[in-house]
């Protein structure tokens, strides 16, 4: 039983919409063209001259109660003791059930491998004691990765100090990606 329970916090006050995280992930994880583990949605709101724009980086929430794991017929999708949801590349049959079940649309089928993939918070890097690639590269330090169980960690401090939001909590998946400064309108599609 691992004592860590990881989480990610996007401090949107810092986010400039630069999409470095999105590109960094492609590089780190060899993500093919046309599919993404993370992306930065941009939303314009309001009318000239008080129009504004906000940015919403999205990635797998590595949910506490992951819908994807629930439905995976081969148990290729599993939860690690530290809470990260991983996909066993050797076991997955590419049936896409997990893609249907995930409320966030963060999974994709790798066009070359035919298996499901998604952001796993760069679990290999974490195992090596490193932070996820996007966290490392974000030029403004807007992505904070850390242990939610450690009250001293930066992520825990920020979560208790500031109002935070998560995406689609009503789905009951207990997502573990948190946002400071999330605009409700950023969730809308049109």
């Amino acid at each position: 039983m691992s004592s860590e329970r990881y989480g990610i916090l996007f401090d949107l006050r810092r986010c400039t919409g630069c999409q470095t995280c999105q590109v960094s992930c492609k590089s780190e994880n060899n993500v093919p063209l046309g599919v993404w583990r993370s992306w930065v949605k941009q939303i314009e709101k309001g009318r000239f001259p008080s129009a504004t724009k906000s940015f919403l980086p999205v990635m797998c929430n590595n949910c506490e109660r992951p819908a994807c794991v629930w439905v995976c017929p081969t148990k290729a999708s599993t939860r690690r003791p530290d809470g990260i949801v991983i996909i066993d590349a050797h076991r997955c049959i590419g049936c896409r059930h997990c893609m249907a079940a995930c409320p966030y649309g963060v999974r994709y089928i790798n066009p070359f491998l035919g298996i499901a993939q998604k952001c796993d918070w760069c679990s290999k890097r974490i195992d090596a004691g490193l932070v996820p690639a996007c966290v490392r590269d974000c030029p403004t330090g807007a992505i904070i990765f850390g242990d939610l169980r450690d009250p001293q960690s930066e992520i825990s401090r920020l979560i208790s100090e500031f109002p935070v939001n998560r995406l689609k909590v009503d789905m009951g998946t207990e997502p573990r990606v948190f946002y400071i400064g999330l605009d409700e309108y950023a969730l809308l599609e049109k």
């Binding site: 630069c18 999409q19 470095t20 999105q22 590109v23 960094s24 590089s27 780190e28 690639a133 490392r136 590269d137 974000c138 030029p139 403004t140 330090g141």
Partner: peptide
Amino acid sequence: SVQGNPKDPNSLGKICARGV
């Protein structure tokens, strides 16, 4: 791959999408 050089006190080990 490319990442920021943490020893660069100017860029502070950060990088941007174009650099990546």
